[in-house]
Simulated assay, not measured.
Amino acid sequence: MISAWRYNESDEDQRELHQFTPNREVPVSELVELGILYWNVDVTGPLYLEKVDTISHERGYKNKDIIDISKATLPNFEEKIKTFFEEHIHEDEEIRFILEGSGYFDVRDKSDQWIRVACKQSDLLPAGIYHRFTLDTANHLKAMRLFKENPKWIPINRSKETDTNQFHVEYLHNIAKEL
């Protein structure tokens, strides 16, 4: 099951939990209202790739690749981790199927406050949602990334211009329709 909570701003390393005491959990229903979809597909199961292919077909994903994020596999590791943690959007749905390791996606709620979503199996962020990503303290995550078209993983950092970005505006429109 997916786990999420209100993000507690502090001077701690971004890879720490950043929870309040007591923790302020965010229900799955609130994540759904934000347009966050979630599947849990057991990577140890014999047919997990068939399940991923089914989701890909249903969502229109045509391409995929594998990214392995660790000190041993990613050049300029610390610099990249800081870059991933800058608030941004993408112009395509962003789905990561977690094969190994774990990390966090932070997303903005409707009040523009951060929610931290722990990712361990299969999580999806819709196109246009402001977010950032970091590993947890284990410093390793291997994921299959799924794309609708050719990979569009260039982050568009948040600014006044991104607030009017067509994909962000479409995201907000789609969320409003679903409420």
Score class of each variant (00 low, 15 high):
8 N>T: 05
10 S>D: 03
12 E>C: 07
15 R>Y: 05
17 L>Q: 09
19 Q>P: 07
20 F>N: 09
24 R>F: 07
32 V>A: 10
32 V>G: 03
32 V>D: 11
33 E>F: 03
38 Y>G: 09
43 V>I: 13
46 P>Y: 07
49 L>F: 09
49 L>N: 13
52 V>K: 08
52 V>Q: 10
55 I>N: 05
58 E>C: 07
61 Y>C: 08
64 K>A: 13
65 D>W: 05
65 D>R: 07
67 I>M: 14
71 K>M: 12
75 P>C: 06
83 T>M: 14
83 T>D: 13
85 F>G: 01
90 H>P: 01
92 D>G: 11
96 R>N: 02
97 F>I: 05
98 I>W: 10
98 I>M: 10
99 L>N: 03
112 D>P: 02
115 I>E: 00
115 I>Y: 00
117 V>N: 00
119 C>N: 10
125 L>P: 01
128 G>K: 01
129 I>R: 01
130 Y>P: 05
130 Y>R: 07
130 Y>C: 04
131 H>D: 00
132 R>A: 06
133 F>V: 00
134 T>F: 06
136 D>E: 04
147 F>C: 03
149 E>P: 04
151 P>M: 14
151 P>W: 07
152 K>S: 09
152 K>L: 15
156 I>W: 10
158 R>Y: 04
159 S>M: 03
160 K>Y: 12
171 Y>T: 03
171 Y>D: 03
175 I>D: 05
175 I>H: 01
